[in-house]
Amino acid sequence: MNILLVRVSSLGDVVHNMPIVADILRHVPHARIDWVVEEGYTALVRLNPGVHRVIPFALRRWRKSLTSAATRAEMGAFRRSLREVEYDFVFDTQGLLKTAVVMRLALLAPAGQRIGLANATEGSGYEAISRIFHTFSVPVGVRTHAVERGRVVVATALGYALDTPADFKLSAPRVEPRPDWLPVQPYAVFFHATARAAKQWQVAHWITIAADLAARGMPVLLPWGSPSEKIAAEQLAALMPNAQVLPKLSMMDAVLLAHDAALAIGVDTGLTHIAAAFNRPTIELYIDSPRWKTEGNWSPDIINLGDEGQPPTVDDVRRAIAVLL
Results as ranks from 00 to 15, higher is better:
G159N: 05
G306E: 06
D167V: 12
V28S: 10
E308R: 15
P49A: 06
P290Y: 08
L82N: 10
S250T: 15
R63V: 15
Q202K: 15
V152E: 04
S171Q: 14
R216A: 14
V184G: 04
L4H: 09
R319T: 06
D13H: 12
W181R: 05
R63C: 08
H134N: 13
A322S: 13
L158E: 02
L271F: 15
L162H: 11
V153F: 05
P223M: 12
A254T: 14
S289W: 02
L325C: 12
R26L: 07
V142F: 14
A210I: 07
P247V: 02
Y160Q: 06
Y126E: 01
W206H: 03
D13A: 06
V152Q: 11
W181V: 08
G270Q: 03
R104Q: 15
T282Q: 03
N119L: 01
L170G: 05
L96P: 00
S9R: 14
Q310N: 10
I302W: 02
A120Q: 13
E122Q: 14
Y286P: 09
I321A: 01
Q310P: 00
E148N: 05
A161T: 14
L158T: 07
Q94G: 01
G296H: 01
S81V: 02
S226I: 02
W181D: 04
V54Q: 06
A69I: 12
